[in-house]
Write a protein that binds this DNA or RNA. Structure first.
Length: 427
RNA sequence: GGAGGAUUAGCAUAAUUGGUAAUGCAGCAGUCUUGAAAACUGCCGGCUUUACGGCCUUGGGGGUUCGAGUCCCUCAUCCUCCGCCA
């Protein structure tokens, strides 16, 4: 969330940001917030003054009682009334704090100056294209659904029977290929790119969702287990960024770089009917997630590094892709700046999002209270958090199958993966 | 699932029948020193205030009270034991 002090001092910057994010209607909420904040500060002053009086008189009462001389009854009677007044003020303050918190949690992050202003995804900027990987595709192409079915490696029908639509079942060489991809990506990120591997819980509590920003805004996108009041993770970002919730880190520990492979669960409510075939949109998929905790002054270098780390996978697998710099109207509410990596699926004839690399600055750190001491003995300051997929396997699998298919309907395995699969051809 | 115990600042330890959080270590700054150590002084949870000061803070939430680390309720986590279990 944003710093209430920043909002109070620069309300015009916040409303400009809301307009650029196509959320101009939220400016009313902003004004409401400022009113609440003003009222709250006035009430705090009143309440604090009365508390100071009460503390002082309570000490006097203690002195009288201890000495055994004189009666404190009058003072106690007065303080009863003061206590009632305080209780009334604090009741109002409590409600105001709730109202303020609700608005604060719902306001999106600042935007970085690099972010192009635009109304929708159409105005995202193509930042980079890397299409020059050579695949001989001069024949009638099959899409990943047909390839998966013919080769017996993907079975969406049975996945649907077991659970429901959007829960894929991998079989034989398909399952092995998926496992190879995950292991390969983890090895690259932990070996060459310097990340520490973590294997986090797959269910999280509500505090964790709030910490990373999925709660309250995107609560309807997360699977919820009512009996135990837990949520299935929509991305490893949630458990891994919450590892250090309510902690004060030493400056020497930063940057912290974590890589985690987990399944991700998403309800995708409201998106039925669009690109739902096969892997294009699923409720469960696997992803290697990269998470960094950075000192504020280095977080934009860290963002470029995460992007490069994610790209390194596609270079090794020789899969064509492009990088988008998201515009103000398309970037997620939590991020100040975000790159999307889209892989090219030649049979679908479209780019598919396989990674999103974002800087959140102190937006999540403030929600989750993740701080560090810039120097020994100095005041704690919020860290910057970042993450990027490196990468999501579902869309990557589509691009891999479609780019590596042969005229015979078989799939070649990229050289980098062969040590992991143990075979070089899926037939 | 059941029984008992525990939770105080980065760490470790105190706090009369309820009287308003004490101390040590570590850390930071300074004095001293060629430099360092030692010693000494100050700082050493959060918010607020130009400042003086004020308020809040004993795992979270609630209650009793003029006043709660202390009494009551509730939740969480950890430890010990019993039961169940891959």
């Amino acid at each position: 969330m944003l710093d209430i002090n920043f909002i109070r001092q620069h309300p015009e910057k916040v409303s400009l940001m809301l307009e650029q994010r196509q959320q101009g209607e939220d400016i009313a909420k902003l004004n409401q917030l400022l009113d609440f904040d003003k009222e709250r500060r006035e009430l705090i002053k009143q309440s604090d003054d009365l508390k100071a009086l009460r503390n002082k008189v309570s000490k006097d009462i203690a002195v009288i009682k201890r000495s055994g001389q004189g009666s404190a009854d009058d003072l106690i009677q007065q303080m009863k009334e003061v206590a009632d007044t305080i209780a009334g003020l604090d009741e109002q303050l409590k409600q105001l704090a709730v109202d303020i918190e609700e608005i604060l949690l719902s306001l999106p992050n600042k935007l970085h100056d690099d972010v192009p202003v635009g109304a929708s995804a159409d105005e995202n900027v193509v930042w980079k294209e890397k299409m020059d990987f050579q695949h001989d595709l001069d024949f009638k192409l099959s899409n990943h659904l047909d390839l998966g079915r013919k080769l017996g490696i993907l079975d969406f029908e049975r996945g649907a029977k077991i659970t429901g639509a959007g829960f894929p079942l991998y079989k034989g060489k398909g399952a092995r290929l998926e496992r190879a991809l995950i292991n390969f990506m983890l090895d690259v990120q932990t070996g060459q790119n310097g990340y520490t591997e973590v294997m986090p819980p797959l269910f999280v509590n509500q505090d964790s969702l709030r910490g990373t920003g999925q709660w309250p805004k995107f609560a309807d996108q997360v699977y919820y287990m009512n009996e135990d009041n837990l949520y299935a993770i929509p991305t490893a970002e949630v458990p891994v960024t919450n590892m250090h919730r309510n902690e004060i880190l030493d400056a020497g520990e930063l940057p912290l770089c974590y890589a985690a492979s987990t399944p991700c669960f998403r309800r995708e409510a409201g998106s039925y009917g669009k690109d739902t075939r096969g892997f294009l949109r699923v409720h469960q998929f696997n992803k290697v997630e990269l998470v960094r905790y950075s000192e504020p002054e280095h977080s934009y270098e860290a963002l470029e590094q995460i992007l490069a780390n994610a790209e390194s996978i596609l270079h090794a697998l020789e899969i064509p892709y492009r990088v988008l710099l998201l515009c103000s109207g398309d970037i997620s509410a939590n991020a100040t700046k975000c790159y999307d990596i889209e892989v090219w699926a030649p049979a679908e004839e479209q780019f598919l999002e396989a990674s999103s690399c974002s800087n959140f600055e102190d937006y999540q750190a403030r929600r989750a209270s993740i701080r560090y001491r810039p120097k020994d003995g100095s005041k704690p300051a919020f860290v910057h958090t970042l993450n990027g997929s490196g990468l999501a396997t579902s869309r990557l699998m589509v691009a891999l199958l479609e780019n590596y298919q042969t005229p015979e309907g078989t799939i070649r395995v990229p050289e980098a993966l062969q040590p992991y699969t143990g075979f070089s051809l899926i037939d």
